[in-house]
């Protein structure tokens, strides 16, 4: 009996210890979140001013804003989403509707999930290799087709947008497929029984039923690319000036933050914090919007 009591006490003590360790683990995670957001808001709000949206990125040692970088980020993200979403939507539709169980879909799903977590800097290298670098044959073909608008052979906003589009596609494919799989088969069968051809069933019934989920996927993709820096470093490069020409190098918020934060100038550091706050605010708003859409759908 006495030995037993010792055993019970040990087991209870062990239980209490490990449970408190797991409480500590949760506190550990929450404390980092609070520290990061706290420091971001503290430094970011201190450097927030209307000038951010009115002036261009300054040369070292002077005051300025982030207007050209904000514009570049929005422009490139918009082009990336415009290219990536339709491709991702169609590919996700194929996986969920036409090839749900065939071996090609299994392979595509596998590749897509690898691309989903592939290092974004490698995607930057890929676009650098096919768009930015001087590949004589491809460049000549592009020149003859587009003349001086050809974006190949040098750093450009087009290259940056393409790199971001490569990141958008797997995100949209995954969410589209998941959302279409949730649509009950009865809906498809009912539409087919009315004589609707398959493409009509998909476009007018399943897409419509999964619309909220698909939009959520697009929002998450935008949230994902709005903070991406690595793939833009050597595709879109950077620019100090106001530029709307996407065949030329263009500034973006993340790249400007990287450049300014790594510099020794105090003014630039402040702008970097302000930019970081803007990006985080955008990402948080997008994620909240996505979450609201998702929960609306469930209820």
């Amino acid at each position: 009996m006495i030995a037993n009591r010792g055993l019970y006490r040990r087991r209870r003590a062990g239980n209490a210890m490990f449970l408190s360790l797991s409480v500590l683990a949760a506190i550990f995670g929450l404390v980092w979140l609070a520290l990061i957001l706290g420091s971001l808001f503290y430094n970011g709000f201190a450097s927030l001013s209307p000038k951010l949206f009115q002036e261009m990125t300054p040369p070292p040692g002077s005051d300025g804003g982030l207007l050209n970088a904000i514009f570049g980020s929005v422009l490139m993200s918009a082009i990336a989403v415009a290219i990536g979403t339709p491709i991702g939507l169609m590919a996700g539709t194929y996986l969920a509707e036409y090839g749900r169980h065939n071996s090609m879909s299994f392979f595509v799903r596998f590749i897509n999930d690898i691309l989903l977590s592939a290092p974004s800097i490698v995607i930057g290298l890929f676009i650098y290799e096919i768009v930015v670098v001087n590949t004589p044959g491809m460049q000549a073909a592009c020149r003859s087709a587009l003349g001086s608008y050809c974006p190949m052979g040098h750093f450009s906003g087009v290259a940056g947008s393409l790199a971001l589009a490569v990141i958008v596609i797997p995100v949209v494919v995954r969410t589209t497929e998941n959302m279409l799989l949730l649509v009950p088969n009865g809906l498809r069968e009912a539409a087919a029984a009315l004589g609707a051809p398959r493409n009509r069933v998909i476009r007018a019934v399943t897409w419509k039923a999964a619309r909220a989920g698909i939009i959520t996927g697009a929002l998450l993709a935008i949230a994902r690319i709005s903070g991406e820096t690595a793939p833009l470093l050597f595709t879109a490069l950077n620019s100090q000036f106001w530029s709307r020409d996407i065949t030329q190098p263009i500034a973006s918020l993340p790249v400007v933050i990287f450049q300014f934060a790594m510099s020794p100038y105090e003014d630039w550091h402040k702008l970097a914090w302000a930019g970081a706050l803007l990006i985080t605010a955008a990402v948080l708003l997008l994620s909240i919007a996505a979450r609201i859409l998702e929960s609306n759908k469930r209820s």
Partner: peptide, 19 residues
Amino acid sequence: AIELLAGIPSIIYGIWGLF
């Protein structure tokens, strides 16, 4: 809140880590 940590862009971790 924990999932929020995954949503914060990596450049934010970078600038916070550095400064």
